[in-house]
């Protein structure tokens, strides 16, 4: 089975981001970037599918030069090859999806894996766009996956429960947290990853469908949230201090 895993580089969750001088992009200066956490589940699932059924795992990212780093992580975790599609435009999801779909048409994977979302722009759009561009089924938010022959069975997380679905290969899968327990790259494999190839590829040129007009940081204002001493409110307060205010 040939597997294509699509990953992206996102700002570290502890980084405080600033808007660039153009008013419509993130200023990357001083920002630490990491592998999108949901993509770790996609890489791990790709490796497990290969371990079960053979084949190869190719990992692709679309982005500026600095985003190549995440491909090294994927190679160190065990991906066989990697493709770097250079795209400095940081344009909309359709532009990125077009590049990935064109790559897929060339290397004809049996399955394409994504993380459920990238935690920077949160558009949730790429897996379904790529599926649509290829005419393949797309199963999103997958928390359990089995592939026998060309038969795909998956469980999806839905509000308050699970949904079981099936499809046939080739298809696009987006990974929910809990799909697996991603492995740590082993230090000897980090060394081996140095000699694995990263193929450079030119981005597909298409017009973006959505144009970003501006980005603004949230204006700080009093929310007038009044918390009580209930356990639920205390949990909520700790979460807000950690995730929103980032002071603990």
């Amino acid at each position: 089975m040939n597997i294509l895993v699509c990953i992206s580089q996102v700002p570290d969750t502890t980084t405080r981001v600033a808007v660039g001088t153009d008013g419509s992009s993130i200023n990357p200066a001083g920002v630490k970037f990491i592998l999108n956490p949901y993509d770790e589940f996609a890489i791990e699932e790709g490796l497990r599918l290969r371990e079960k059924s053979g084949g190869t795992v190719t990992t692709v990212t679309v982005g500026p030069d600095t985003s190549k780093e995440v491909l090294r992580t994927a190679l160190a975790m065990g991906s066989d090859t990697a493709v770097f599609v250079k795209d400095e435009s940081r344009s909309d999801s359709f532009v990125v999806a077009s590049s990935i779909a064109d790559l897929a048409k060339e290397i004809t994977p049996d399955v394409i894996l994504f993380g459920r979302q990238s935690i920077d722009f949160d558009s949730f759009a790429l897996p379904s766009m790529v599926g649509e561009l290829l005419g393949w089924p797309n199963i999103s938010m997958v928390s359990s996956l089995t592939i026998e022959g060309t038969q795909v069975s998956a469980e999806r997380d839905i509000e308050g429960g699970k949904e079981s679905v099936s499809a046939t290969l080739p298809c696009v899968i987006s990974a929910q947290k809990g799909l697996n327990d991603p492995r740590y790259p082993k230090l000897p494999d980090i060394m081996k990853a140095k000699s694995k190839p990263i193929a450079d590829r030119v981005a597909t040129v298409v017009e973006p469908r959505v144009v970003t007009l501006s980005m603004t940081l949230p204006v700080s204002k009093r929310l007038n949230n009044i918390m009580t001493d209930s356990d639920a409110d205390i949990d909520q307060l700790v979460r807000l201090l950690h995730e929103e205010a980032k002071v603990i």
Binding site: T15, K32, E69, R72, A76, P185, I190
Partner: peptide, 27 residues
């Protein structure tokens, strides 16, 4: 999540694999 102090942008001195080792052991 821990983020190390890097007041002098010393990360520029480290190679990709050195940073990957750091991230792996940090996780």
């Amino acid at each position: 999540m821990f983020s190390h102090p890097d007041y002098y942008n010393l990360d520029e001195l480290f190679t990709e694999e050195e940073k990957l080792v750091r991230q792996t052991v940090r996780d």
